[in-house]
Simulated scan of single mutants.
Amino acid sequence: MRIAVTTPTGNVGRHVVSALVRAGVRPRVLLRDPDRLSPDIRDDVDAVRVDQYEPDSVAAATEGVGALFWVDPPSEGADPLADYARATDSVVRAVTDNGIGRVVFQSSVGAEKRHGAGEIDGLAHTETALDGLGIDVTHLRCGYFFTNLELQLDALRAGAPLQVILPLDLPMAWVAPRDIAEAAAGRLLSPDWSGRCVQAVHGPADLTWRQVADILSAAVGRRIGVERITDDAMRAQLRQVGMSDRLVEAVLGMSTGLREDFVPEQPRTVRTTTPTTLAAWAYDTLRPQITDASS
């Protein structure tokens, strides 16, 4: 069965590709710029130049594919939910035209709400569309990526505290992108599931932002603080970096939509718990980016 992978240079996709190659699969990888692929992997994949927002292009690129790892690409426009809808049109077209019977979709904790969670609503839209196709589909409901911390690298290097709009004592699932990739690759390769499935990927522990700050402090060898700021203060910061009003609200909504009485549909179990700790990731990945820059 031919397997196609979208966003093969992303935080999750690149690990999915590597896992498939190690399993003896030669995946077809779909991306805008094949030159972005690591030289180490280029000879082991079939790269196809494609824009995921173009249904014709995606359908042509997935001809002959039996299984697909689909990630809605990051929104680059003024209306992110419209971009998610465009990406959804592309995957629906590809599945329908090519008879792709198996899809693993990278979704998020919070997509079960369907509405009211900002950008996550776009993922919910894709989930619903894939469910309507009558194929075998697994939705990976992922926790908060460790790599999101890299968005505040400049502040961390400067010794400034992390700034968040969630309550500092609110626990939530934190997960390593590599662990998400392992779950995705396992689903793509396993014949032992069918129908509509939801697989949560929760990382090893639910953590509060206060705990995260303590873990990062120990890993990087300097005190890292965290402070809660108002929604309006965060809006102002996002607008300062050039985000449109709709994008600002979509980004904020991923936090505001999940901070009041939200309980994930999938509880933490051995099935949803993955091994990589935030401490290990921070020491291996975050520490060099902070300490090397300050030396």
Rank of each mutant, 00 (worst) to 15 (best):
T128W: 08
G77K: 01
R157N: 06
Y144A: 15
L68K: 09
T138N: 00
G99I: 15
V103P: 06
A117M: 10
V104W: 02
V104M: 05
R102P: 09
L151A: 12
T96M: 07
E112N: 04
R86F: 03
N148A: 08
E76H: 00
L81I: 06
R102C: 08
E119D: 13
V95D: 04
V91Y: 14
F146S: 13
T128M: 11
V71K: 02
G77M: 08
R157H: 06
Q152A: 12
D83W: 03
P167R: 10
H139G: 00
G77C: 01
R86K: 07
D72S: 11
H139T: 00
T126K: 14
A111H: 12
L153V: 04
G118W: 10
L68G: 15
E112Q: 09
N148W: 07
P80F: 08
G110T: 09
L130M: 03
L156R: 07
Q163N: 06
A82V: 02
S90G: 08
Q152L: 05
S107M: 10
H125I: 00
T88P: 13
E76F: 00
W70N: 07
A111E: 04
L123P: 01
A111F: 09
L151G: 13
H139F: 14
A111V: 05
V137N: 04
A129H: 02
L68T: 09
S108T: 10
Y84P: 02
A87N: 00
R114F: 15
A94Q: 00
D89P: 09
S107W: 08
L153W: 03
G110K: 05
D131W: 14
I120H: 03
Q106F: 11
G110D: 10
D131I: 03
P80E: 06
D89H: 03
R93A: 15
F105S: 03
D131Y: 15
A94N: 00
R141N: 03
E119N: 11
T96Q: 13
A129D: 05
D154N: 00
S90W: 05
V95W: 14
L151Q: 07
E127K: 01
A85I: 07
G101F: 05
H139A: 10
H139I: 01
V92G: 01
V71H: 00
N98C: 09
G143S: 13
E127Y: 01
R157I: 03
